[in-house]
């Protein structure tokens, strides 16, 4: 499998002196469903806007489907569809016309069958002839998705496309994206809904403060970085004294009221659940309830971005 997108040492410093990107590296495999995560202000949108050619980079290199993005822009643009984060719409036209115009600007004679299919899949058929001003926020966002897909790009970038879209519709939108991905389209996605990224994406990268923190397969990230913990509940309050803390140092114990949490470690695919449970039994007595909590993407995300800050 080839590389759809290879970003090397990309930097961006805005005119006001704000450093948005400080040498980001990123490699997106062709055909992947790639999640780009990071807290607000991490530089995700700056990166995407540079790829979309709406912002100039300060320095760095980008290879897009094997070609230099900055010297072969025109070819690259034809293979790329971008859904911008901020809602934008053309107040002079209706969705069907907007899609025809967008297709034409890409040098593609409007394929009305595809445009109708897009309108239908994104549930805009009923509103196809209304002026874009009359559309609701969610509809405008779906129109942005349609605009990004109208020229049938090989790589699609979605910058938080589901903000303000209701749950039902979000599911259907993701169903559509999955189909496109299955048909060979590379999809790069930023989202604030981490469970969405976890469910949809096979690769994940986390950036913060303009730098790449990690980039790997979603499974790899959840397996290797993601640990789980043992949560025990007791009839009465339990306090982790310094003494206990030393004794159970392996499990970094912490308590909250009648709840005690012990961190588990994974070695060769086995967790040390038994050791932890035995240690807890010896220290705190019999528990009323025992639970294993898997660290999900959100925990991993928070931990990695937090580690980076301290």
């Amino acid at each position: 499998m080839g590389i759809a997108l290879e970003v090397k040492q990309l930097t961006k410093t805005y005119n006001n002196g704000k450093k948005a990107l400080e040498g980001v590296d990123l490699s997106v495999p062709e055909g992947s469903f790639f999640a780009l995560l990071g807290p607000n202000g991490a530089g995700k949108s700056s990166l995407i806007n540079i790829l979309a050619d709406t912002v100039k980079p300060s320095s760095g290199q980008v290879t897009f489907l094997g070609k230099d993005l900055f010297t072969e822009r025109r070819w690259c643009k034809k293979q790329l569809g971008v859904v911008p984060q901020e809602i934008a719409f053309d107040p002079f036209f209706a969705p069907r016309d907007i899609l025809k115009i967008m297709s034409g600007m890409f040098g593609v004679k409007p394929d009305m069958k595809w445009i109708d299919e897009l309108l239908e899949r994104l549930e805009l058929s009923e509103h196809a002839k209304k002026n874009a001003r009359q559309l609701s926020g969610g509809m405008r966002r779906r129109l942005l998705v349609a605009q990004a897909l109208v020229h049938k790009p090989k790589v699609v970038i979605l910058d938080e496309p589901t903000a303000g879209v209701d749950v039902e519709l979000r599911k259907r939108l993701w169903g559509f994206m999955r189909e496109l991905n299955a048909a060979g389209t590379t999809i790069l996605l930023t989202t604030h809904y981490l469970e969405e990224a976890e469910e949809l994406c096979d690769h994940v990268a986390i950036i913060n403060q303009g730098k790449l923190l990690t980039s790997q397969s979603m499974k790899g990230l959840l397996d290797n970085v993601g640990s789980s913990s043992l949560v025990l509940e007791y009839p009465e309050e339990r306090i982790v004294s310094t003494d206990i803390e030393q004794k159970l140092a392996d499990f970094s114990p912490r308590s909250q009221g009648n709840k005690v949490t012990l961190c588990l470690k994974k070695t060769d695919g086995h967790t040390n659940f038994n050791d932890a449970y035995q240690a807890a039994l010896a220290t705190f007595g019999e528990a009323t309830s025992v639970n294993i909590q898997d660290e999900d993407l959100e925990d991993v995300f928070l931990r990695i971005t937090h580690e980076n800050q301290t």
């Binding site: 709406t54 025109r74 070819w75 643009k77 034809k78 934008a88 053309d90 967008m102 890409f106």
Partner: peptide, 11 residues
């Protein structure tokens, strides 16, 4: 309207 981005993204 933030619409000039479409012009900039087009080839």
């Amino acid at each position: 309207m933030n619409m000039q981005i479409f012009l900039m993204m087009a080839p």
